[in-house]
Amino acid sequence: MPIHERSLIRPENLVTHENLVIDGVDVSGHWSTFITSRTVTDYNEAMEEEISALPGGEHINRCWQCGSCTNACTVNAINPEFNPRYWIYLIRLGMEEELLRDKEILWQCVSCNKCTYACPRDVVPEAVMKATAHWMELKGHTPKSPSTHFDESFTGSVIATGKIEEGQVMRSFFKKTGQPLNQPWLIALVRGLVLKFPITLLMRLGLSALIRPRTSGWGRTQAALNDYVSEVEARNSKALGLDGKGKH
């Protein structure tokens, strides 16, 4: 008998037996494929509360699982495994192990806001994705994603000077993520730039390395923002029960 829901069941949970007789009935072979039953006992009851305590996760409790977010999702269209509706479901049930199966892709939300536009309950799924990715990193389930490294390089630059200089943010990002700079497409891009504007490019690169663009009189703001970021970090750690365990 074909199992129509096969795509919904993990291959390791589909079992066929070479020789199996139950109560005198031969149930061997392909025609009597079993689905291993599953019992979940290790619910993480704190997970929803922790994620909703992080910035962006506040409204996860409003979700009524209509699936508008996943239906609208940009990333879901190119990777069906990327499923915000399902992740919100898992978070609300506390199914941590199941959620962590997708830890390699959850950070890939591109913040296009299509989910937030479509959501009839103002869950702000985009922000929930960011809070969840952040939660995974803070809890040590996954190292910082390339996206987090980029956010931190960028924010660091803004807090330091009030502005960003794209070249500086990119250099810091490539350094943090250890990405090779000799990728063929990057070379093609840079070669194109150099051929196109040999003088302006050199001048701009040289200038931005010497004089970083900055907002004048930013010093007090920089101090205020640094204080605020420390406050936020302390609050987030406390909400996740990580205070006193050192900085992640």
Binding site: P55, G56, A127, D151, E152, F154, T155, V229
Partner: peptide, 22 residues
């Protein structure tokens, strides 16, 4: 005069309220 970065797509992921301030 003397404007600053709005926070772009990145600062909100550190904390949305910093972006609001910027």
């Amino acid at each position: 005069k003397n404007w600053n970065c709005c926070g772009a797509m990145e600062v909100k992921n550190v904390d949305p309220k910093i972006q609001t301030y910027l």
